[in-house]
Design a protein around this nucleic acid. Structure first.
Lengths: 255, 255
DNA sequence: TCGATTCATTGACATGCATCAATAAATTCG
DNA sequence: CGAATTTATTGATGCATGTCAATGAATCGA
């Protein structure tokens, strides 16, 4: 039943100082000796599997999680039973920072594909941050980044049309995979069309149609979960709604 | 020309420990002695006036600001020249936390009405946070709250219709005014219809029509900038799109 | 104080995307 | 393996909200 193998069990044991993600993750910018101290409060999880919950809305907040491998979606449930996807989280990304104030999680974190995480218990982290100023500094930076990222989502949801939203989303994934040493041109979507649509404030059908159209236009190739971005420049143009003209054709507005 | 009077000049000089906003603001939960230390790094501004900039996108980040009186909007400019309003900030609220990581402001803060702020220089604040664990704690809480508030905006922009958006917005103002000791039923909007629409991802005309309709339905009274909420329960029902029926009438959908 | 500008309101009309529906393809599970 | 379920695709249609336009009200600036 267990999918644990010797290989990924070894992965899980890696200390922060040896972790390939340390450059993106909480230890970013810390000195070796400080990383070692941080490492001692971190606990590494056994793998979670698709549809497991890392935590659920209302759960007591124990600490923040760093994604090690795999991917996770966070979402909030609404009174009427519908959900709003808040984000998709890749290796090196931290989740749970929103729960510090309330002491309980305000969203649910659900596993999209087999995933390992590190738990950094919050009380210990806070104590350590007093002792290690550069850790406090790093926490402030991390939280600040999360806050400043918000404006991109507000622009996306407040101003962008469907084409721009999907293009922006794909470019974000592409760029994040690149940072993590994966291909920026080709990757697998660990989330469904439904989840993408939910996240982007669009209907599933719209996502589906857009994938089809982008493919017809030669911007990408999509086969189920697998996406290949054929024309990243075009996607960039679309995402910031510069006139999406390729050198060749006038935009649809001119007809 | 200057609107400064003896009264508000005195207001400006108030130390954190005597400030009526300390309960909402950065000093929240700090001990007297710690507040005094915080107080020593805070600098109080002279009043800013409508359309002044507190800071602009790209400005070097000096520190975070606490609104003391008045109100401020923050927004980002897009490549095509349009703006996205990120928020409206009332007394006791902190702005600038998003700039910690980048070291430059990623948004512009523009004064909506005569406003005084406190500047908390960031380097000093960070140093002090190492010395005063409860200040560090408070900073983490503050940033966490900002992060968790994001989900409300994502729900609003991702899932809510125009009625729900405006109702949610008015209730948010109402509740924030209440916390600050003002009436929750009656207040002045310091922002234009345009700015409300921009913030909520709606056209000005839609905002205007909604105000008219809400007024016709007896939910509120609006006269230019002045708003009186006559039926807060109805607004709550609308904002979470429970069937918006008052006991009396069927919703418009039933005709 | 008056003209210019900005802001708000209202109506007519257009459209982007949601919704509904049908089907197909993939995945799950007994 | 085959039935049941979930997920994805595609088409037809409708509606909420945007856009355009006209007017009036308020505010600003000289």
């Amino acid at each position: 039943m267990s999918k644990t193998t010797i290989v990924n069990f070894n992965d899980l044991k890696i200390a922060c100082e040896n972790c390939s993600l340390s450059r993106l993750c909480l230890p970013m910018g810390l000195e070796q000796s400080d990383i070692e101290r941080l490492d001692q409060i971190v606990s590494r999880s056994k793998p979670y599997h698709r549809n497991d919950y890392l935590f659920r809305e209302g759960d007591t907040f124990k600490g923040i999680y760093a994604v090690k491998t795999g991917s996770i979606k966070t979402y909030v449930s609404r009174e009427d039973g519908s959900d709003q996807v808040l984000g998709f989280h890749l290796p090196g990304e931290i989740i749970g920072l929103d729960a510090i104030e309330a002491g309980v999680h305000g969203c649910t974190a659900k596993i999209l594909e087999t995933t390992a995480v590190c738990l950094i218990p919050y009380e210990k982290l806070e104590k350590l941050s007093v002792e290690i100023p550069s850790l406090q500094h790093q926490m402030f930076r991390l939280m600040s980044r999360e806050i400043s990222n918000e404006s991109n989502m507000l622009i996306l949801l407040g101003k962008k049309n469907a084409d721009e939203r999907l293009a922006t989303f794909l470019l974000s994934l592409s760029q994040r995979y690149k940072q993590r040493g994966f291909s920026s041109q080709e990757f697998n979507l660990s989330m469904s069309r439904n989840e993408i649509g939910n996240y982007l404030g669009l209907a599933v059908e719209t996502i589906s149609r857009l994938f089809t159209r982008f493919q017809d236009e030669g911007i990408l190739k999509v086969e189920r979960k697998h996406v290949e971005l054929l024309d990243i420049e075009a996607l960039k143009r679309i995402s910031s709604h510069c006139s999406q003209n390729d050198s060749s054709s006038k935009s649809s507005a001119s007809i």
